[in-house]
């Protein structure tokens, strides 16, 4: 059975390329373009892994994660945070919210990202 991945990213180009890549890698992909839609999708669809942009309209990534963690089964969603800024303070907060990977978008190759996500799924 294919793993479910939720991509929450407000930039359509990035969102599309991520969706296409993970689809090619055999994932079942859903996308959301803002924080609220992301939270709804995560609650209802219950993905195995979530790629979460931190700067999002309506509700930012950190708040989304906080609310999700309070939901039943919400803490089982493995999360890789994506960002363009790399504030250590934010990283520290996210780590407390169960985010083990934190990637700066432009520094990573797609293949590395895919590997990271796969690693995460096998380790759990």
């Amino acid at each position: 059975m294919a793993h479910k991945i939720l991509v929450v990213e407000d930039n359509e180009s990035l969102c599309n390329v991520l969706a296409d890549t993970f689809t090619d890698e055999g994932f079942e992909v859903k996308t959301a373009f803002d924080g609220e839609a992301g939270l709804e999708a995560a609650k209802e669809w219950k993905p195995d892994v979530m790629l979460l942009d931190l700067l999002l309209p309506k509700k930012d990534g950190e708040d989304l994660l906080k609310e999700l963690r309070q939901e039943e089964g919400g803490d089982s969603v493995a999360t890789v945070a994506l960002t363009n800024s790399d504030s250590s303070e934010k990283v520290y907060n996210l780590m407390n919210l169960g985010v083990t990977d934190y990637l700066t978008k432009s520094d990573w190759e797609l293949s590395d990202l895919v590997e990271k996500v796969k690693e995460k799924l096998t380790s759990e």
Partner: peptide, 13 residues
Amino acid sequence: RTPLGAIRWYTER
């Protein structure tokens, strides 16, 4: 960074 990331990832694909 955002558009640059998009360029990289699309090119990679």
